[in-house]
Each structure stands twice: as C-alpha cells, then as structure tokens.
C-alpha cells in the first residue's frame, strides 16, 4: 500500500526527476519531447482499465468505457507521432 508520507516522497522524487531530465535539453527536441512526455502520461490507460473493470452500474461502465477509449487514444497516438518525428532525426554521417 502506498499511503501518506510514502506517497508524498514518491511525488517529490518523481517531480525532481522530471525537472532534471528536461533541464539540459536542446531546443531542437522540444516538440518531440513534448510529444514523448504526452505519450508517457498515456499510462492513464492502465488506471482507466482498473476503474472500468470495477465499474458496477451502467453509468459507471459507460464512463469507464469512455475513459479506456480516451486513454488508449492517448497512448497509441502519442507513441505513433513521437516515433515518426524521432525517426526522421539523422546526422550527416547517417545520411550518406
């Protein structure tokens, strides 16, 4: 179980991690990186699946369905566009 202060510690450390990773990134990668981080919060799909899996009433199931649908879109779309962009980045040596 993740509770109280343990949760707070995880939150704090993860926040610093994110800040440090982006800190020294070159401007040329801003768009792919925003897209990549957009993909990573697609993990919300997992939560939506659990929520839908536990849903009981019709209303809950409908909302759960929407959640899973949206989460899957976030993850799949985020991956495809990020991969497409990064695939194109080549140096002059690779180009020859």
């Amino acid at each position: 179980m993740i509770d109280g202060f343990i949760a707070l510690y995880i939150f704090m450390l993860a926040a610093f991690t994110g800040y440090e990773i982006i800190g020294r990134v070159p401007a040329i990668l801003h768009t792919p990186l925003m897209s990549g981080s957009n993909f990573i919060h697609g993990i919300v799909l997992v939560g939506a699946m659990v929520a839908m899996g536990r849903a009981e009433t019709t209303l809950e199931i409908v909302i759960g369905f929407i959640g899973v649908f949206l989460g899957a879109g976030n993850a799949a779309g985020g991956y495809v566009v990020t991969e497409r962009m990064l695939e194109m980045f080549k140096s002059s040596r690779e180009n020859k």
Partner: peptide
C-alpha cells in the same frame, strides 16, 4: 500529467504516480 498522478494516488498505482509526476514537472519546465 499531474491529473494522472493524482488519480494514481486514488487507485494506489505507483506507475501512474511516477509517470504522471515526471510529466507534470518536465512539462512545467518545458
């Protein structure tokens, strides 16, 4: 990212908490 992290706390899901928070702070800096 932040919203995902908060819902991660609700569902006790560490992957959501970490991924959401990392994106939340990285995104703020970006």
């Amino acid at each position: 990212g932040l919203a995902v992290a908060f819902e991660g706390f609700v569902l006790q899901n560490a992957a959501m908490i970490i991924a959401g928070t990392v994106v939340g702070s990285a995104g703020t800096l970006l």
